[in-house]
Nucleic acid binder design. Sequence first.
DNA 1: AAGCCTTTCAACCGCGACAAT
DNA 2: AATTGTCGCGGTTGAAAGGCT
Length: 432
Amino acid sequence: MGRYSCCYKEKLRKGLWSPEEDVKLVNHITKHGHGCWSSVPKQAGLQRCGKSCRLRWLNYLRPDLKRGTFSQEEENLILELHAVLGNRWSQIAAQLPGRTDNEIKNLWNSCLKKRLRQSGIDPVTHKPLSEVENGEDNSSSLDKAPEVSNELNLLKSESSKSDAASISPKAYATEMESSSHSSKFYFKSDTNIITNNSSKDLFQDRFMTNCHSSDLMRNFPHQMSYASTDYIPNDSNSSHWFSQTSRPFDIYSEYPFNANSILTPTTSMFLPTSFNYNPSLVVSSDNISTPYGSHYWEASASNNSNSSNGSNSSTELSSSPLNIHNSTFSSWGMGDCSTPTKEAQVHMLENQTEEAKWNEYLHNPMSMLASMQNQYQAPETLCNEIKPTMNFMHETLGAILPHSHTKQQELSQSFSIFSKDIQKLTSAFGHM
DNA sequence: AAGCCTTTCAACCGCGACAAT
DNA sequence: AATTGTCGCGGTTGAAAGGCT
C-alpha cells in the first residue's frame, strides 16, 4: 500500500495557493534559497508540506519561468523530443528554457496528443495509426516510448543507469557496430555551444547546459538530429528531412517513404497545414544523395557564431535561415556524399575514413576516448564558458542571486560528474 | 441567462532512486 | 544491511475557465 500523504500527519493546507502564501514562499526563497525543502514551510511560516512548496516554486513562482502559450518552435521541439524520449517530461523540459515538465505534460495531454491523433499519428509510437492498428508494432508500450533505432534503444535501455562504467564498452561498441542501417557516430561538440545564445542553437545550448553528464553521455549521439528546430531550407524543392535516426528523406515523397523511416518525417507528413511542424534539420540534397545512409551532421562553429542575436522571434529566424548550403557541415557518420562541391568532397574524404576510424575504435577504444575528450572541453573550460551566462542571470535575476549561485554550483557539479564519467569510461576501456 | 460539456492547468499522489544514519 | 528521509518524476485529479446549446 502507498504511504500516507506527507500532509497527513500535520494539519497542513492543501489545494490552491493563496497570494499570501506565494509571497511568503517567494520572500523566503529569495532571501535564503530553498535549502532542504522539508524545512522550507516551517521557516517560511507556511502550513504546507515541503513537497507542495517545492512544486509551487518550480512550477509557478520561479522567476525564470516563461509564462504564456507555447511557440510553434517549442511545440515542434516537444514533438521531436517526445518521439525520442517518450513521456520523460523532465528531460524534455530541460531542453525548453523557462518551461516546466508539468506545463509540457499538460500541453501534451490536452493538446499535442490530440492533434497527433487527429492527424493520424499514434502519439505513443509516433507512427501512423493505421500501422499501429495493424499490429505491426509489437513492442511493449510499457514505457510508452516510440519505436527507435538501435542507438535509441540502447539509449533507453541504459537510461536507468547513471554509471557509464557499468556498460561493457565492448558490448556497447558491438551493439553500435551491429546497427548496420544506423551510423556509428559520436556528436562532435562545438566549443561555442555554451556561450552561443542563438535560439537556433537553443537545443544544443540546453542540451549542453542542462543535461546531467551521464545523460549527456547517453544522449549526445542523437542531439544533432534535434539541434535546430527553426531551420528552413533556402530551397525547399530539394530538401531532405532527417528523422532521429537521421535518415534523410524527400519531403515531397509519398508516405510510406520507407518502412524504417520513423517519427519526425512521419509526424510531419500527417500534420495539417495549420500545424506547422518544421523539420529538425534540413539539408540540401546537393550535399546528400544517399537516401538511407545515416548521417549525423555538425554545424560548424563559424556557422553558429554569426547567428546569435538572442532573439526567439520566429520571423527573425525565418528571415535568417540557417545557411545550410553554405555552412560547413561535417558528417561523422557513414555518409555517402556524392556531390562534387568542395566541401562535399572534403566530407566525402572524411566519410571514407569513417569505417577505418571505427575499426580503429573497436580495436583501440582508447583512441575513441581521446577523440571524445577532444570534442568535449574540459569541465573547467566549460564552466568558464558558462560564466557570461551566469553573469547575465545574476543581472536579470538580481533579487535571487543565491539561486543563481546554486545553479552555477550545480553546473560545476555536473561537469565534475561528467569528468568522472570520462574517467570511469577510461577505466572500463582499460579493462577490455 | 442557465445548464451542460470540454479544455486547461495547478496541484496532489504514489513511487523509485539515492543518500545519510 | 536495514531503515529513514528527501527529492524528483510521471500519472492523475479536480477546480476554474471557456464554449456550446
